Simulated assay, not measured.
Amino acid sequence: MDWDQFDLNPKVIAALKKADIKSIKEILNLSGSDLQRLMKLSSADVECLLKTVSHTLRRNSMLTALQLYQDNDHLTSQHQKLSLGCSVLDNLLKGGIPLVGITELAGESSAGKTQISLQLCLCVQYPYRYGGLESGAVYICTEDVFPSKRLQQLIGQQQKLRADVPAEVIRKIKFGNSIFVEHAADLDTFHSCITKRISLLLARGMVRLVVVDSIAALFRCEFGVSDSVTKARYLQTFGAQLHSLSARFRAPIMCVNQVSDAVSESEAARCSCSVADNRVSPALGITWANQLLMRLMVSRVSPLERSVGVASCHTGSLRTLRVVFAPHLPPSCCYYTVKLEGVKGME
């Protein structure tokens, strides 16, 4: 830190250099009395130093409402989203997946969780103006083999799905150098993966999306009923680590989760989704739910539910995407289908 650039008394600058204080962080980590003893300055000089440092940190950090309104090109992390590659689904989510925070996608088997995740891995590669982040993705598999064949199929069908994107842009979407696949079958491997490998990829700017498929598989056989406290600590640790990565690199985290039947009345009351007349709830309980920014649930539409509206007019396999909770969205849902070209919402 070049203290000579600060508007400080030369005596204070000399004291900073003599005390070997090299950063603003070191100053803020010390109390006023500690600074006085360390730098041998008066309380007035220390107060002036703290005010100058605080002013430097606050400079240009605040924007007026008029500045935000006029700055059309600047999108803050609170408002910028990662598109799902479908206008109907993006409208439901008011633009897509938030860049900062953990988004959970829960649902029963064959509801379309992996299909949506794969589509996100392609969407993140698109330019900003088409809802992408102009970067790659890392896909962490915890139980199944990565569906590379299906991903290649989606890449070949992108022109049909993204009619709004020019063909020359679609031709740049690829698998090999833009989507990194990691396998983590146990908790230790997963911890090492997110703290070392994923952190490195994010730091180098090679990826801006992390998909975990699935988070529940890591805890399926590791813990018994008596290990609930240990399990909760692992969930809190992983949640904090993923949040830190997301906030530091403004990279959305998508965690696929499984569901379990709600057997008690209290569980049934907390359920947010009904699948084929059976109430289900996302796995891992309230500890994991507290780590999430947004929870989405997907389900297959049963024949009994095809009585009215769009569901009765569609003959193929129909699914529902539901917003369970999010700080910026009300509970809502829409229908979608999984076709050869990808996931498509229905008006």
Rank of each mutant, 00 (worst) to 15 (best):
L66S: 10
N91L: 03
I97G: 01
P98M: 02
K81D: 06
L89E: 04
S87T: 14
H79Y: 15
D73W: 04
L75N: 06
L99A: 01
N72S: 10
L84Q: 05
L93R: 01
N72M: 04
N72G: 08
K94W: 12
Q70D: 11
Q70N: 14
H79R: 06
L84K: 01
S83A: 14
Q78L: 13
S87G: 04
V88T: 15
T76L: 02
N72V: 12
D73Q: 10
N91Y: 12
S83D: 06
L84R: 08
K94D: 13
I97M: 02
L93F: 14
Y69A: 07
C86H: 12
Y69C: 05
Q78K: 15
G96K: 04
D71S: 13
T76M: 01
G85Q: 07
I97Q: 01
D73I: 09
Y69N: 05
V88G: 00
L92V: 09
L89Q: 05
L89A: 03
S77W: 13
H74C: 00
L66W: 14
C86E: 10
D90L: 04
G96Y: 13
S87M: 04
N72L: 12
L82S: 07
L66P: 00
H79Q: 11
L99E: 00
L75V: 08
Q80T: 06
G95Q: 10
Q67P: 02
G96L: 05
L66Y: 12
S87N: 08
S83Q: 03
Y69F: 11
G96S: 05
I97H: 01
G96F: 09
L92G: 07
Q70P: 00
S77P: 15
V88D: 03
L99P: 09
A65H: 07
G96T: 05
K81Y: 07
S77H: 07
L89G: 10
S77L: 04
